[in-house]
């Protein structure tokens, strides 16, 4: 099989930019948590966390430059986990 060493080089500047984005999002999480959205608080926190993971995944972990298969599996694993969570909660929610 041909050598598919990923030749994409991320510049320093770009990495720092992503870092700043993530920093802002972290501060945002803390800031937002001060408000009481009732049951929505967790959802908001998790949405922000997921945006952060998305940034980390695509840029720092280079998923953006990987092939379709790898991207699909990463998403697949996330979906699998969510599905298990939902099926598990069919027990707790209706108890």
């Amino acid at each position: 099989m041909s050598d598919t060493q990923n030749t994409h080089v991320t510049g320093y500047r770009f990495s720092i930019l992503i870092w700043v984005d993530l920093l802002i999002l972290t501060l945002l999480t803390i800031e937002v948590a001060q408000f009481d959205f009732q049951s929505l608080t967790v959802i908001v926190a998790l949405v922000i966390a997921t945006i952060k993971s998305y940034l980390v995944g695509t840029h720092f972990m280079h998923l953006k430059f990987e092939n379709k298969f790898l991207k699909a599996v990463v998403i697949g694993v996330g979906v699998l986990f969510l599905a298990v969570l939902i099926v598990l909660f069919s027990d707790y929610l209706f108890y």
Binding site: T29, I30, A33, Q34, D36, T41, V42, A45, L46, I48, A49, K52, S53, V56, G57, F60, M61
Partner: peptide
């Protein structure tokens, strides 16, 4: 390393910010 950090991204709000 990034993955270990991603886990912290979730751990942090779930433990510290549920005020």
């Amino acid at each position: 390393w990034h993955l270990v950090d991603v886990i912290w991204i979730y751990l942090f709000p779930l433990f510290y910010l549920i005020i």
